[in-house]
Design a binder for these strands. Structure first.
Lengths: 158, 158
DNA sequence: GACAAATATGTTATACTATATCAAAACGCA
DNA sequence: TGCGTTTTGATATAGTATAACATATTTGTC
C-alpha cells in the first residue's frame, strides 16, 4: 500500500525497476527489445502518466523516427507483462512501481497537478468482490482510479 | 447493490427513470431540454453503454442533424447531474439506473458481450479509502470498473 | 412587453487517441 | 542454413473529443 506523492531517490528507483524488468524478462523468455526498454525508460524517467503521443515525441527526441504503432505496440507488451499500466481516465500510461505477477493496482489521480500515485489494495476481495459475487460476475481485471487532490495540492488551496 | 444482468420490466424501468429525471430537474431548476432528454432516452432505450458517435447516429435517425458537440454537451450535462455515467474503459456512456445524489457507482463490464451492470458500493469507505488516507489523498470521485465475464457468458463457455 | 445577462444550440474546423494492414527485418531453433 | 515466428517499419485511416465563434433561446428585471 505504499505510494509516491512523496519525493524519493529517483535514480535508484529507476535503475532498480529496469534491473527487475530485465530479470523478469530473462526468466520468462520475454524479449525486452530496445524499443520496449526505451519506452519503459521514458515512463520511468518522467515518473508520471504520459499519453502515447507524448511518449512518441520522446522517442523522436532520442533519435527514433517512430510512428504511432511503434509506441502502442511497446505499450501493449509492457502492459501485458505488468511493467506499465494504463490510466483509463487520462488515456495515459504510467510505469508500474512494483512489477510483479498478479497485483491489482489502484491509482490516485490528482486533478490539479495530474500526478498519479499507485497504491495496492485487493479491492476484488472486499466490497467490490461481494458485489460481483452477488451478480454472478467473474472479475478478471479491475480498473480503480480515484480522482481528487494530492497532499501537496490540497495544502496549496488552503 | 442491485444490478441488471437479469431481464427486467424495461418499459417500466425506462419511464420511471425519465419521470425521476424530470422531477429532479424541476426541483433543482435544471433544464432538461429536448436534446438532453432525447440523449437520455436513447441511453435508457438500449440500456447499454454507447459511444458518443453511436448516440449521434441515433439522434440523426430521430430527425436531429447533430454534430459531435451536441452529443458531448448533452452528455456533459447528464453526467454532471448523475443521470449518465461514463465507462472510461470503453469510452462509452450509460444511463444511471439510480439517479440520486452522491452515489458511487461501480461497473461490471462483460468482455464477451459488452453488457455493463451498475452496482453500488462505497468503495471509498473501505480499502480504497484507507489507501487514500495513508497517502493524504482526498478522493472526490472514483472510477471503478471490473472487467470479466457476466453470468450469461460464463455459462456459455462451460 | 422590452431589455440585458445568462444559458443553450448550431456549425465548422481541428486536435487527440488508437488500430488495420501489409511489407520487411530480426530472432530462435532444428 | 533454412524455416517459422516474432518484431519492426510505414502508410493510411478509424474513432473519440474539444476549441472557437455565431446564433438563438430562456430568465429575471424594470
Amino acid at each position: 500500500m505504499a505510494l509516491s506523492f512523496q519525493p524519493h531517490d529517483h535514480d535508484h528507483c529507476m535503475s532498480d525497476a529496469l534491473a527487475t524488468a530485465e530479470e523478469l524478462c530473462a526468466d520468462k523468455k520475454l524479449r525486452l527489445t530496445p524499443i520496449r526498454k526505451l519506452v519503459y525508460e521514458i515512463l520511468l524517467t518522467d515518473h508520471r502518466a504520459m499519453g502515447a503521443y507524448q511518449i512518441l515525441d520522446e522517442l523522436k527526441k532520442r533519435g527514433e523516427k517512430s510512428q504511432p504503432p511503434v509506441a502502442y505496440r511497446a505499450l501493449d507488451f509492457l502492459q501485458q507483462h505488468g511493467f506499465v499500466h494504463k490510466i483509463e481516465r487520462l488515456n495515459a500510461f504510467i510505469a508500474c512501481t512494483h512489477p510483479h505477477d498478479g497485483h491489482k493496482p489502484v491509482f490516485l489521480i490528482c486533478r490539479s497537478c495530474d500526478q498519479v500515485a499507485e497504491a495496492h489494495a485487493e479491492l476484488s476481495e472486499g466490497r467490490l468482490g461481494r458485489a460481483a459475487d452477488e451478480a454472478g460476475f467473474e472479475i478478471e481485471k479491475t480498473v480503480v482510479e480515484a480522482v481528487g487532490l494530492c497532499p501537496n495540492c490540497k495544502d496549496e488551496t488552503d
